[in-house]
Simulated scan of single mutants.
Amino acid sequence: MLYFSQITSTIMHNNINATFEGYFILLGFSRWPHLEFILFVVILIFYLMTLLGNLFIIVLSHLDTRLHTPMYFFLSNLSFLDLCYTTSCIPQLLVNLWGQEKTISFAGCMIQLYFVLALGTTECVLLVVMAYDRYAAVCRPLHYTVLMPPRLCHLLAVTSWASGFTNSALHSLCTFWIPLCEHHLVNHFFCEVPALLRLSCVRTHANELTLLVTSFIFVVIPLLLILTSYGAITWAVLRMPSKSGLQKAFGTCGAHLMVVSLFFISAMCIYLQPPTESSQDRSKFIALIYTVVTPSLNPLIYTLRNKDVKRAVKRLLGQE
């Protein structure tokens, strides 16, 4: 604790002029300096996996006409979303982990907060849309083309993006409207609403209530809808006569649910728990799950053992 106080004092002393010029200081993982290099290497590997995996899905889905289906349309949206989501916060984290400078400008913090929250909210809604698409494909296969026409797919995608950016605009305006204390020390590795609310010099009950309500709408309700969709899929799969089809369906649905659960449960731990001193450090490591881990796992989970993707790769390479 004493060592962390010394680090904080040093950072404040080195950046005091920048702070008064409109900068925030991201403390990040300064409490554990011996972990910073390890975290840098691990996060860099996950970030590169995210970039390569999601770019692969986007390019393959675009080039192969047989993948121009609702499933791969939404998957391409998810891949592009994850590329933007991780890029909005991970490069800044890598810079802070590598060097001593841990500042971010006021404008940079505001932009980062807006896009991280907007893209995170969009992913919550988009995952619901993808779960409904899988429900329609598995439980209503004969009516699938009627239930998921191209126009509806585009409308659902636009709705996902629009709801995310609208929700983020509300919170960004509310967060940066309140007066902040002078030191501007953000006890997190990126600009996030709960961390910035702790810097306020006034009561933030209205902001916290708004955050709680919107988090319930965009996190809890989507999770319940996804579980309902996969519950219906599971019931349909259990009635399949083929054991091989049963195992394959359970393996695929189980992998999807694992990643979805990681994303939503970690987000719930951040946005639906009351802010306390002991939860601040824990929230940094939890936030790594939905900003670093799940975006890198999505390409693997949604394409692993996928025959359509394997055939598309062979066609692209001229082997089929």
Rank of each mutant, 00 (worst) to 15 (best):
L156I: 00
P70S: 10
I58N: 03
I104P: 03
T145D: 11
S172Y: 01
L55S: 14
E21S: 13
E101H: 10
A118T: 08
L170D: 07
K243P: 06
A255E: 06
C139H: 12
E36T: 15
F73V: 09
A267T: 13
F106M: 06
Y302P: 00
V259K: 04
M12G: 04
N54E: 00
C109R: 09
G318S: 09
L224G: 09
L199Q: 10
C124Y: 05
N15M: 10
L119N: 08
C174M: 13
N17R: 07
Q100E: 05
I111R: 07
V309R: 09
I270G: 02
G254N: 04
R315G: 07
L48E: 10
K248W: 03
C181F: 00
F37V: 14
Y230M: 06
D64S: 08
C269D: 05
S105N: 12
R315L: 08
V125F: 02
F250N: 07
C109A: 15
F29Q: 11
L197P: 05
L227W: 04
W235P: 00
L199N: 08
T122L: 03
F80D: 01
R134Q: 08
T19N: 07
N17G: 02
S266L: 01
T166R: 03
N167K: 11
I270N: 10
Y302T: 11
L81I: 03
H34Q: 15
L246R: 13
I226E: 09
T291S: 12
P179M: 12
I38S: 12
L2G: 06
R31D: 14
R282T: 14
G22V: 11
W235F: 12
S266N: 02
Y302E: 06
S5K: 14
S76P: 06
L257Q: 09
Y144L: 03
L93D: 00
I301W: 06
F74G: 08
C84I: 06
L83G: 11
W32A: 11
P295V: 13
P150W: 06
A169T: 02
Y114G: 02
M240Q: 12
S105M: 06
F115L: 14
E36P: 00
E36Y: 06
I233P: 10
L63D: 00
N77G: 14
R140D: 10
L224Q: 12
Y144Q: 09
L83Q: 03
K243M: 07
F74K: 07
W161Q: 00
G120S: 08
C89P: 03
S215A: 15
L173K: 11
T252Q: 09
L180A: 09
S172H: 03
V213I: 15
P149I: 01
L257M: 14
